[in-house]
Computed example of a mutant assay.
Amino acid sequence: MIQIIIFSILLISIMGTFITELIIGMLWILKIRKKAPLNNIVLKLKRNTVILGSLFILILILIIFSYFSTDTPIIVDKNGNPLPKSIAELRKVQLNGRQEWISIRGENKNNPVLLFLAGGPGGTQMAAVRYNLQKLEKNFVVVNWDQPGSGKSYYAANVKNLNVNTYVQDGYALTKYLCKTFKKDKIYLVGESWGSALGIFLSEKYPEKYYSFVGTGQMVDFSKTEELDYENAIKIAQIKNNTNKITKLRSNGHPPYYGTDVTWKSAEYLNYLSSYMQKDPGIYNSHFNTWRDISSSEYNLVDKINFLWGLTNTFNHVYPQLYSIDLRKNYAKVKIPIYFFIGRRDINAPISLVEDYYNVLRAPHKEIVWFEHSGHSPWINESDKFVNQLNKILIDK
């Protein structure tokens, strides 16, 4: 948080200095016309130029410092001593010619590997998973992947070149890398929201690489989801007599959206639904701690900016590509066990679509685990239960 504040102050200072330069420059021109002495103006120009240059240098130093100071905290015992078999590191990996970042955390590097697929597209959840699912590190080596176009991997590829296949192929390349690195034949796969769809894509195409898949905040039919979310937002706004929200939603038109403002039009109803869930007393721990996550040690100053860019630019480009996907039709057969961890109060990813998919899904084993006090994010809303259920179905079985 301190880094963000400092960075903001510096940007404001630069803008202020730049504006001052313009004003002084204009005064200089006026004084030239009046043939007035210029010594004072020249001194001010020199002084402000030095200030501006110093600020740029200071920002550069901060960026360089933050780049080399990023890390993920070491794992320690109750006395604060590092666990001898633990692993806690950020690692840059080469995936199909793209440089992408992962975090690796576990109390014992010999434990089974679990790859967590973040939501989005464009989302990064390295810090969020570390905070909310830290207990998962006891029995697993937990790997978080900043997908291309998100967080630390924002520049891995040109956002305009990203497509669904990019994520599938890079996810598979990462899976092979993890199997080789940790000497495993297979790994476990967990995906949330957009990551829950990506997890199904990977499980269906490369079943030999995964023991099982757990989807939470499960996405099924992207186009239908947007339609239902939009209609639900209007219904809630009508109940609350929120005429401004109704007017805004209707002026945006009915989804799905295309073009350059997909993110902002979608955010109009998605944020409204998220706000509604945050105020639901039946949902535990309902607030995302975005500022805590974005200010965590995993991200340098540039990453912090890209944390936000991924959620806007990458989402805007990739999400419309998902409208044609319906797991009920395209992914009705998967050759590994499939589990759905679903929040009973989720109004973002419609529960009816998850139940429809469950009914048509053919898999060696399938199961819905309900989280009665969760919305779209059981891994945050009921994190202890989430960890316990994962241990139960993945370790105990």
Rank of each mutant, 00 (worst) to 15 (best):
K46H: 00
R47P: 00
N48H: 12
T49H: 10
V50F: 15
V50G: 07
V50I: 15
L52K: 01
L52W: 03
G53I: 03
S54R: 00
S54T: 06
L55R: 00
I57W: 03
I57L: 07
L58Q: 07
I59F: 15
I59P: 02
I59E: 06
I61W: 08
I61L: 14
I61F: 11
L62T: 09
L62D: 05
L62H: 03
L62A: 10
I63C: 06
I63M: 14
I64G: 11
I64F: 07
F65Y: 11
F65G: 02
F65L: 10
F65M: 10
S66P: 13
S66M: 05
Y67V: 14
F68M: 05
F68D: 02
S69H: 08
S69G: 13
D71M: 09
D71F: 12
D71N: 14
D71T: 13
D71Y: 15
T72Q: 05
T72R: 08
T72W: 00
T72E: 03
P73E: 11
I74T: 09
I74F: 06
I75H: 00
I75Q: 01
I75A: 03
V76N: 05
V76S: 08
D77W: 00
D77E: 07
K78R: 09
N79F: 11
G80F: 02
G80I: 03
L83K: 01
L83C: 03
P84W: 03
P84Y: 09
P84E: 04
S86W: 05
S86M: 04
I87D: 10
A88M: 04
E89N: 07
E89L: 13
E89I: 12
L90P: 06
L90E: 11
K92F: 02
V93P: 13
V93F: 04
Q94M: 08
L95Y: 10
L95M: 04
N96L: 11
N96G: 12
N96Q: 07
G97W: 11
R98T: 15
R98E: 15
Q99T: 13
Q99Y: 09
Q99L: 13
Q99F: 13
E100T: 08
W101Q: 15
W101C: 02
I102C: 10
I102A: 15
I102K: 15
